[in-house]
Design a protein around this nucleic acid. Structure first.
Length: 592
RNA sequence: GGCGCUGUAGCUCAAUUGGUUAGAGUACCGGACUGUCGAUCCGGUGGUUGCGGGUUCGAGCCCCGUCAGCGUCGCCA
């Protein structure tokens, strides 16, 4: 070891002993007759003093020329700071290391930004110089938290008899789901591997193989557009269990949530976690990942709308649409015409809503809006009653299809929840959404496709609906939602070939295709597959949510930009013609 | 692919309605200084206002295109 202590370690109790520190120059203050250097490492910072009587003037002059982010090794005697010269901002602020000279382990070019900088540089610069950005204490904290969370997960599952099994990164492309990242095969020209979107099929095979309880910290890849909480390459805590039902999976994850909350945040989580059916979530919050840290619950006034004169409401209701709204408690005054116009524009632009109807509840309890003249007093009274509106409230309504009202109101909830700060910054709300529909209809093609994935088992009670009414058929599926973000999701799988065929039929996957793509799984199901199910947790999101961060890039050491590039390595890049030739590949331009 | 925001010195930002030589803090360079810790003081370097085009007597500012970063919708079984 080049050092005897870390830069966050020395205290008054060490005074008088010799110590050697290694670290980066956080700042170098040259006073001519003495030089003060704050030496930083991941553990903290310690002041190193090069001055008399230890150092001669030549050594002091040398130290004065040391620059930011140089790497130093400093050996000296741990000393009390002078009376009144202690620094309360540093854990090591009562002492300093007095040295004759420091050894320069490495110099540094003048950095484009320094880790201690208060005004963060633009993110593209942070990403290009990620090694500097990662020196920032906040980034180091995030990466440490991430490490601790993964450790807790591994410990927890090891204690519950799970076996960690690695599954291949080079697999084969699947027909459904996200776009695959493809890897060309040199040995089989024209053939491609696909990087896993998840280890889904492998873990099911492991159940058939008798591994009973499988877990893995798995890298997953999906070639889709990025978001603040979505990267093309991400990490899942993936698990699968045999001889279980949904209750067992939920219970074991409940235990994990409580443990991680306790160990990482020091907080107690009430178990069991709350549950809500998909139907209830959509009805009350318009989303299958509702943020339950605040209310803003959706109220359906379609029945009232059918009886009013106002064409927008009545017409929509009569044509089978819905009129639903939310109530902002007592904050109507904060909504200027301009702000309401912005919200209107928002629901039109982002969700294709036809408009936003709003009402202020006046001091006398009456409703006012630009359109209120289109309503009779009785109509307005019934709306007020349905919404339990009080003076000072703001009412927002969408009159549209079920989907648009769901998406639009969910969007408004999310936006207003944030803008109005309807929840405490440190609040944590975890819950389960269950009983998802098995299938969704593609609006364009009219085809059915799996809401989760094609191996999801229907609720036993809904099994007959597979033939008669697929739309109503619910799945044994469960999503873990934390603070309005999908933090995990899983299902009980189909474990018999007959049901699996039936589902494939419904999805329009013919026997030939099924055999071609999933033959190995279908085979496995014929050779004694146990009932099984599992879940995958989004580790990046867990770290983000538990850390109170709003961006997934803050918890990934080397994240990609919105266009899926790495600004540091400049990936993706071009390759030599020789490499392409070896793979028998040629690039062509395709007009899109 | 659509919509929106941002882009000015190494970095963070300013620049009146379109009007003189684009400024400040910080970093950097030189000098002074023994107690600083956002050190201080004196002096200095540093600009294709992302890029290309247009309007105008005149563009950092207006218009069109484009590139990049971010947010969002579509997309993400």
């Amino acid at each position: 070891m080049l050092r005897s202590h870390t830069c966050g370690q020395l205290r008054v109790s060490d005074v008088g002993s010799e110590a050697t520190l290694c670290g980066w120059v956080e700042s170098c203050r040259d006073h001519g007759g003495a030089v003060f250097i704050d030496l930083r490492d991941r553990y903290g910072a310690t002041q190193v003093v090069i001055g008399p009587p230890e150092a001669n003037q030549q050594q002091i002059d040398f130290a004065g020329r040391i620059g930011a982010e140089w790497v130093l090794k400093a050996t000296g005697v741990v000393s009390h700071r002078l009376e009144g010269k202690t620094n309360e901002k540093l854990a090591t602020g009562d002492i300093e290391l007095r040295c004759a000279q420091v050894e320069v382990l490495n110099t540094s070019a003048v950095p484009p930004f320094v880790p201690s900088q208060s005004d963060l540089p633009n993110e593209d610069l942070r990403l290009k110089y990620r090694f500097l950005d990662l020196r920032r204490p906040q980034m180091q904290r995030s990466m440490i938290t991430r490490s601790q969370i993964i450790k807790e997960m591994r410990d927890y599952f090891a204690e519950h008899d799970f076996i960690d099994v690695e599954t291949p990164i080079l697999g084969r492309s699947t027909p459904e789901g996200a776009r695959d990242y493809l890897v060309p095969s040199r040995v089989h020209p024209g053939h491609f591997y696909a990087l896993p979107q998840s280890p889904q099929l492998y873990k099911q095979i492991l159940m058939v193989a008798g591994f009973d309880r499988y877990v893995q910290v798995a890298k997953c890849f999906r070639d889709e557009d990025l978001r603040a909480d979505r990267q093309p390459e991400f990490t899942q805590l993936d698990l699968e269990m045999s001889f279980v039902d949904a209750e067992d999976i939920i219970a074991i994850i409940d235990g994990l949530v409580a443990r991680v909350a306790k160990k990482i945040l020091g907080r107690e989580v009430q178990l069991p976690l709350a549950r809500m059916s998909y139907e209830e979530a959509m009805r009350r919050f318009g989303s299958d990942q509702p943020d339950l840290r605040y209310a803003l619950e959706i109220v359906d006034i379609t029945e009232i709308a059918k009886t009013v004169e106002f064409r927008v409401f009545r017409g929509t209701a009569d044509e089978g649409g819905f009129v639903r709204g939310i109530k902002v408690d007592g904050r109507a005054e904060e909504f200027s015409r301009r702000r309401l116009d912005e919200l209107t524009e928002y629901v039109k632009r982002d969700f294709g809503a036809r408009g936003l109807a709003w009402f202020r509840v006046e001091p006398d309890g009456s409703l006012w809006s630009p359109t209120s003249k289109n309503f009779t007093a009785d109509e307005l009274n019934r709306i007020t009653a349905a919404m339990s509106a009080k003076p000072g409230d703001l009412l927002l309504f969408l009159a549209d299809s079920w989907n648009v009202t769901c998406r639009g109101l969910a969007g408004l909830r999310k936006r207003l929840g944030g803008e109005l700060k309807l929840y405490a910054a440190d609040s944590l709300h975890c819950s389960w959404i269950t009983e998802f529909p098995m299938f969704e209809k593609d609006d364009e093609t009219g085809n059915w496709h799996a809401k989760h994935h094609p191996f999801t088992a229907p609720l036993a009670s809904d099994l007959p609906l597979l033939k008669t009414n697929p739309e109503a058929c619910r799945a044994q599926a469960y999503d873990l939602v934390i603070n309005g973000s999908e933090a995990g999701g899983g299902t009980i799988r189909i474990h018999d070939a007959a049901t699996q065929s039936q589902v494939f039929d419904l999805l329009g996957i013919d026997q030939e295709t099924a055999r071609d793509r999933f033959g190995f799984l279908l085979d496995a199901l014929r050779f004694g597959a146990p009932p099984h199910g599992g879940i995958a947790l989004g580790i990046d999101r867990w770290v983000m949510l538990l850390g109170g961060l709003e961006n997934i890039r803050e918890v990934i050491a080397f994240p990609k930009t919105q266009k899926a590039t790495d600004l540091m390595t400049e990936a993706p890049g071009t390759v030599d013609t020789a490499q392409l030739n070896e793979l028998q590949l040629r690039t062509v331009s395709v007009k899109t």
